[in-house]
């Protein structure tokens, strides 16, 4: 499809001017307000954030069965207190710092066989007794792609027990399995205003004291709050019949966390790009050439 035609299609729809404000942001958390959205577009972004942002997660674990020897020749038992499938499942959920420049395995040059371009290999080699943590996953290859949290306990080894596993992490998206879900607590809310008549609501001041940042405007008779910054104390106003609550379903406050495998802003960036990419894909397939 030519760029011209694409432009023509875009102009056919009605677009409202969008504005984006980032309210709070850290490495693994972001809250931002978007004005000028419809619920469906907001939801599309939310779903993309959950489903369609790739990350590395362990997808294959190879256990060594049989005796394990340490450097001094002591013999350890490979049977663990937890079953192999539980250990594998726990390993799969460990967040791993991800590199999005890696290939998805099914469209990698290795044709799905696994290669350094699409696969990150880790190994655990630990003898008991002691707790095996996510930090014991030793990367083979790129040393920067390590578990985002090193303190996640995997399995507790008893005396004379040892673990020797090889684990392969590949890129994937939350659509297929939650282990590839980068974000958690993804949500948005409509912009909401509480119009409080000071005469009717006697304890308006407690709300103000609890949530000083939530006051949108105030005069002698009335005070207007917004719970957009999630000051939970305001939830009580919802049940107060004397408070006028107004909601705006074109203005959305989003927030989400990441599990540490990617930075929140990168996730948002990727998701926005991915969304338009997919919409274009749809457009292409609908309009055709």
């Amino acid at each position: 499809m030519t760029e011209q035609r694409r432009k023509a299609v875009r102009e056919a729809g009605e677009y409202k001017q969008m504005s984006v404000t980032i309210n709070t942001m850290s490495d693994d958390f972001i809250r931002f307000t978007v004005d000028g959205l419809t619920p469906s577009t907001a939801n599309a972004l939310r779903r993309t954030l959950m489903d369609d942002v790739p990350k590395l997660a362990i997808d294959k674990v190879i256990f060594h069965h049989g005796q394990i020897r340490d450097s001094e020749g002591n013999v350890y038992d490979s049977s663990l207190p937890l079953f192999d499938e539980i250990v594998a499942h726990r390993l799969s959920l460990v967040p791993i710092v991800s590199d999005l420049s890696m290939n998805f395995r099914d469209n990698c040059s290795c044709k799905g066989e696994g290669c350094p371009l699409c696969t990150m290999t880790f190994s655990i080699n630990k003898i008991g007794s002691g707790v095996v943590n996510s930090g014991d996953l030793q990367p083979v290859g790129k040393s920067d792609l390590v578990p985002a949290d090193k303190e996640i306990p995997i399995v507790k080894l008893g005396p004379r027990q040892a673990i020797l596993v090889t684990a392969e992490a590949i890129l994937g998206t939350g659509k297929k399995h939650t282990k590839w879900q980068v974000t958690s607590g993804v949500s948005y809310k409509y912009h909401r205003e509480f119009l409080v008549e000071k005469k009717k609501v006697k304890n308006w001041e407690t709300y103000k004291n609890h949530c000083p940042d939530s006051v949108l405007s105030e005069n002698a008779e009335r005070i207007v709050f917004s719970d957009d910054n999630r000051c939970t104390f305001l939830s009580q106003l919802l049940d107060n019949p004397d408070v006028k609550v107004t909601e705006d379903d074109t203005k959305y406050v989003f927030q989400f966390e990441t599990d540490g495998s990617l930075k929140a802003i990168d996730v948002l960036d990727y998701a926005l790009k991915r969304l338009s990419q997919r919409l274009n894909l749809l457009l292409d397939s609908v309009v055709g050439d």
Partner: peptide, 12 residues
């Protein structure tokens, strides 16, 4: 799937 489930404003 999680994305099809209802969610609260806190993301629960």
């Amino acid at each position: 799937p999680q994305e099809d489930m209802p969610f609260t404003e806190e993301g629960i």
